[in-house]
Design a protein around this nucleic acid. Structure first.
Lengths: 343, 470
RNA sequence: GCCCGGAUAGCUCAGUCGGUAGAGCAUCAAACUUAGAGCAUCAAAAUCUGAGGGUCCAGGGUUCGAGUCCCUGCUCGGGCG
């Protein structure tokens, strides 16, 4: 139940986020004892840069509280999909919040929606999907890697999401999404090496009303094949974009102001070496500024996001260029609107 | 599972003509301007969403609609048996390639010729078309198709379509809120299906309010704080939310009313010694000393002054201890409220007896109770105004371990807020300011590349997490 | 015994505000001061100002995709028992 909105304090078994600093966070489960190497139950003591924390002491503590450790302090936070994305144990490369947000928004998910995902990977996106569809919605997620599917299943259970998220081990490229999914999906998301092989399976998974499709691929060749498959299968509004999030860093800095004083306008100098002092040491000529800049390095590429709409089945054979199936044709400059996201 | 939802009078619909989107409420008299064309929408009533219509010209620039069973793609129709050149060495741009005159082409249009035959004639009379490369011909036809396109699709409004429509029409009309920013605001605010979300939004057509409302079921609500009594709510009304949902989950309150109501409640409770669920640490008497106007119009006029009023009180010294507001003024406000109760409801004015509470007052009470009882699940700000004073105030009502999200089209306001929160609030951690770089791509075989034009700015987002400071 | 964190310049370091392309020492250079020898230079010390010097410990693995992953080894630091 870790992610449940109604929760205000920590119970045994909850997953919590220990916030040491913005770049130093840990997620762990609140269990008073854990098994050591030899299989013996020992007291669960979580070690950090700022000393040790007896995990059992967290039970009953309110989320958002400051907790004391042997060499410092930390805040204990309730996990949410964003914090989880930053702290989850990686089994694969994961999708981060900038891309996740765009995917969830463009899939047009609503309370109660039925969404299909493959592959599950490390479950970073899955948590955000589950949050949006809610307790009455369904996330069906597939991964062809048995162990990954198992770990993900356990995590969703620990996070109280088992009634929303169902994991299955399945190679959807070969076998499709299965009969129990067929005709039920409002949205389909693919993060696979060969997404174009799955497009027709996705069509089968959608409701007769159609829905929204998204695919994440790191390489443009994958995108080309996927887009071609989408057009062949009657998808419209096919658009591809990439989104990079940049953080703006704020620093308060004191700058020395270049002095334009001449030796005549200055107070008579006592000794020569005083004259050689820099302006920086002259306390009257300092400027305090709030400065901003970017991180030194940032991811230059994550992946291309391709979105598309599958119209209702009865409208599919009208090859509706009224609702363009191309990504923004050409020079957006002359287009009346930059359709894709340009926006 | 297929449900063909048919279009009714009163519905908002999105009219899509290629990349052009327009939100329109269907009325009994249903003419709409699509660009320079006047289109009669009578034919769409009773049809399901996603129906494609052909525009049939009645008079010059006036069209009726007819359900289309198929659309002939212009490039496909025209490109049959057409030869192409291999490069452009023999093509010079001398402006003389098209043998038809403007008058002749206009004449074709007025005579009601189909797009296909007009473009056919253009190609016939072009001295260069057959020398163009295949790609170049395709591009030529796309341009012509855009000009002569005669089909529209009626779409059911979604937040995504509305966001794209507003932004493409004019980013300023929604404070530069690009879809990726909206998406991230919803993420960082951890908007779930239920909960109480406090939103201060202005200059955005209520796009965020609409986006949040769309995420909620009947257990969730948005407290939408606005500076005016009648804020633009185009994006909320345009979504065709059921009336019940809007009434229950979208609580629209004005800044002055809301703050006054919260202050009053807090001071009453503190004099009664009632333990508050959420403690208000910074009471500012500046708010209550403000004369409370008795009519909606007057209140609206005073909203900006109110925000400034808090600013003066909060900015210099926010650590001052709370002093309960002056009793006399509270009395005045209370009596004022009584007076208001007797006023006829300005919104649902249908001659009902004075006993029925107006909508705005019900909203106010529900919003206030929700906030005082449980606190806010997140705070979301996206306004033309500099929101810092209100942020500092509302932070006291935010649940611990929950998020604050502030959007601004400019970077500097967020930097100021960042600095103030860093310096003055020990109960906000994990502060970050983000901006997004978004690039779209043309995906065509052999011609894949980034789009030439990209959106230069999608705004900036500040996020933070409330904690218990003790 | 177990756990956590670090390792880039010749050397040594870098903070619970998201402070790891930031420094200090050392080196080199210039300026000035003081003292000496010499006669148009040489040279010592103190002060001050600059400059040069950076691609991230080693090995392995995982991910369609690693500039936000994991393991092992080496080494340094910290914590709990």
């Amino acid at each position: 139940m870790s992610f449940s909105r109604d929760k205000t304090e920590i119970d045994e078994g909850d997953t919590v986020i220990l916030y040491l600093s913005a770049s130093n966070m840990h997620a762990f489960r609140v269990q008073p004892t854990i098994k050591n190497k030899h299989g013996e139950l020992v007291e669960n003591v979580f070690q950090t840069t700022y000393g040790a924390l007896k995990v059992a002491s967290l039970v009953g503590v309110k989320f958002g509280s400051k907790v004391q450790m042997s060499r410092g302090w930390a805040f204990v936070l309730q996990p949410n999909p964003e914090l989880w994305t930053l702290t989850l144990p990686h089994r694969t490369q994961i999708i981060y919040t900038a891309d996740i947000s765009l995917i969830v928004f463009h899939l047009e998910l609503r309370p109660g929606s039925f969404v299909v995902e493959s592959g599950t990977g490390s479950g970073s996106l899955t948590h955000a999907l589950a949050r949006r569809v809610g307790a009455h919605g369904t996330v069906r997620t597939f991964d062809f890697h048995d162990q990954r599917a198992q770990i993900a299943t356990e995590e969703f259970a620990q996070h109280g999401l088992s009634n929303v998220v169902q994991v299955a081990c399945r190679d959807v490229s070969c076998d499709g999404f299965g009969e129990d999914v067929q005709g039920r999906a409002d949205a389909v998301f693919l993060d696979l090496p060969h997404p174009w092989l799955v497009v027709h399976h996705a069509v089968a998974a959608f409701k007769l009303d159609g829905g929204r499709f998204a695919s994440f691929s790191p390489c443009i060749e994958q995108v080309q094949k996927t887009v071609a498959a989408l057009r062949e299968n009657g998808f419209l509004e096919v658009t591809t974009m990439e989104c990079l999030q940049r953080e703006i860093l704020v620093n308060n800095r004191t700058l020395a102001v270049a002095s334009v004083e001449t030796s005549d306008s200055k107070e008579p100098a006592g000794r020569l070496d005083e004259r050689s002092q820099t302006v920086a040491s002259d306390s009257s000529d300092k400027l305090e500024l709030v400065c901003t800049n970017y991180q030194n390095t940032m991811p230059g590429h994550t992946g291309y996001l391709t979105f598309a709409t599958l119209p209702p089945v009865w409208a599919r054979n009208i090859s509706s260029s009224a609702c363009p199936s191309d990504p923004d044709g050409d020079d957006g400059g002359s287009a009346p609107v930059i359709e894709t996201a340009g926006l | 599972m297929e449900i063909r939802e048919s279009i009714k009078i009163g519905d908002y619909v999105v009219i899509q003509k290629q990349k052009y989107l327009k939100l329109h409420q269907l009325k009994a008299r249903c003419d709409v301007m699509l660009g320079k064309d006047l289109v009669n929408l009578k034919a769409i009533v009773g049809q399901p969403f996603w129906t494609t219509f052909k525009m049939i010209q009645k008079k010059k620039k006036e069209f009726d609609l007819e359900v289309a069973s198929e659309i002939e793609s212009l490039p496909e129709a025209v490109m049959k048996d057409v030869q192409s050149g291999s490069d452009n060495r023999n093509i010079t741009d001398d402006g003389k390639s098209q043998l038809l005159s403007t008058e002749e082409i206009e004449g074709f249009k007025e005579s009601g010729l189909s797009a296909q035959s007009i473009v056919g004639k253009l190609i016939e009379s072009s001295t260069t078309f057959h020398n163009k490369t295949e790609y170049s011909q395709e591009k030529y036809l796309k341009k012509k198709e855009k000009k002569y396109f005669e089909y529209i699709v009626i779409r059911k409004p979604t937040v995504r379509l509305l966001a794209e429509m507003f932004y493409s029409k004019d980013p300023h009309s929604v404070l530069g809120l690009r879809h990726d920013s909206i998406a991230q605001i919803l993420s960082y605010a951890n908007v779930q299906n239920s909960g109480t979300y406090v939103l201060f939004e202005s200059g955005t057509q209520a796009l965020l309010g609409s986006a949040i409302l769309d995420c909620l079921d009947d257990q969730g609500r948005v407290i939408s704080i606005t500076t005016g009594r009648y804020p633009p709510k185009q994006a909320v009304v345009g979504m065709n939310f059921p009336e019940e949902k809007r009434a229950k989950s979208f609580l629209s309150v004005t800044l002055t009313d809301f703050l006054t109501s919260l202050e009053k409640r807090v001071s009453e409770e503190s004099t009664n010694g009632v333990e508050e669920a959420v403690k208000l640490s910074n009471g500012e008497d500046g708010l209550v000393t403000q004369a409370v106007p008795s009519t909606a119009a007057e209140r609206t006029g005073n909203e900006k002054a109110t925000l400034n009023g808090i600013a003066q009180n909060v900015l210099p010294a926010s650590t001052e201890d709370s002093k309960a507001a002056d009793n006399g003024l509270i009395q005045e406000e209370t009596s004022n409220s009584k007076k208001r109760k007797q006023e006829p409801d300005t919104i649902n004015d249908c001659g009902t007896p004075a006993l029925k509470k107006p909508r705005w007052q019900e909203n106010l009470e529900i919003a206030k109770d929700a906030l005082l009882k449980d606190g806010a699940d997140s705070l979301i700000f996206a306004s033309k105004e500099f929101p810092l004073p209100l942020i500092l105030k509302m932070l006291d009502y935010l649940k611990p371990s929950h998020s604050l999200v502030v959007y601004s089209v400019y970077r500097e306001p967020l930097v100021l807020i960042y600095n103030e929160l860093k310096k003055k609030r020990k109960d906000v951690i994990g502060l970050h300011i983000f901006e997004n770089f978004l690039r779209t791509h043309q995906i065509l075989s052999d011609r894949t590349r980034p789009d030439v034009m990209m959106s230069a700015s999608g705004g900036h987002i500040l996020v933070g997490t409330k904690v218990l400071s003790s």
